[in-house]
């Protein structure tokens, strides 16, 4: 489902003396449907960079990234938008929403964007919010005023609303209590059972050993000169 071939990435900082910072070189790995791959490596090794390239958020300097049959490094913005709507989900560490939009709508939005009927989309949103223990009294409020943990759970609910065939998870269990952590791990296991290819960053070692089938150490892709 996800294939990364010979991927390279560097940042050129034009306004800081045109400094070039190489981050990745020759990154190669694949993720099959129903498989969960954990990216490992110390802080700064480039885990998040790989994730962002997989989402089309960062541009790669060289190599190919195939999500299904679309090459992200060569796709038009329109194709990437379509891919993100249908195929490729991303649970980031931060929730970014239009102020004033109620939580229930925030969670249902990925489904509404796919043209799912309002009833079905909101039913799914209610189900996820209940499972993630967001009290019903908060559903009608905008998540911008929620606590950090609540925002993260809203973000997770939103990421799992649609059953994406490829899913990227950036520390999904960070800052969650034991019960909610368990729910999130179950959601990941369900997604795997449904055939989703998952790439994740988990600092939580226990969670990683439980859901990940393999580990890919990103340090192996760090350019030698740096």
């Amino acid at each position: 489902m996800i294939t990364v071939e010979n991927l390279a990435k560097s940042f050129t900082l034009h306004n800081q003396g045109s400094a070039v910072i190489p981050v990745l070189e020759g990154a190669d790995f694949t993720v099959a449907p129903g498989e969960c791959v954990a990216l490992t490596g110390e802080s700064g090794a480039g885990k998040s960079t790989v994730m962002r390239i997989l989402y089309g958020n960062y541009l790669a300097q060289a190599g190919r990234v195939m999500i299904g049959d679309v090459d992200l490094t060569a796709a038009e913005p329109r194709e990437i938008l379509g891919l993100r709507r249908e195929t490729l989900g991303y649970v980031s560490q931060f929730l970014r929403v239009v102020p004033r939009v109620p939580t229930l709508e925030v969670v249902a939005e990925p489904l509404l964007a796919l043209g799912v009927a309002d009833d079905a989309a909101f039913a799914r949103a209610r189900d996820l919010l209940t499972r993630l223990r967001i009290p019903e009294t908060l559903w009608g409020l905008s998540p911008t005023t929620f606590s950090g943990g609540e925002q993260q759970r809203v973000n997770i609910a939103r990421g799992f609303a649609h059953g994406y065939p490829a899913l990227l998870l950036d520390e999904p269990t960070a800052s969650l209590d034991a019960l909610n952590r368990e729910t999130v791990l179950q959601l990941i296991e369900e997604a795997k059972a449904n055939g989703a290819a998952i790439v994740g960053i988990f600092h939580d070692v226990e969670a990683r050993t439980r859901v990940a089938d393999r580990e890919v150490n990103v340090s192996a892709f760090t350019p030698v000169a740096a």
Binding site: F11, T12, L13, H14, N15, R52, G56, N57, Y58, L59, P77, I80, L81
Partner: peptide, 22 residues
């Protein structure tokens, strides 16, 4: 510069865009 909104804002390529974003 052109591209996906989040890509241009998070990984700007042109010197001017980098200045604008920072």
């Amino acid at each position: 510069e052109t591209g996906l909104t989040d890509q241009v804002l998070d990984d700007p390529q042109h010197a001017y865009t980098q200045l604008l974003v920072s």
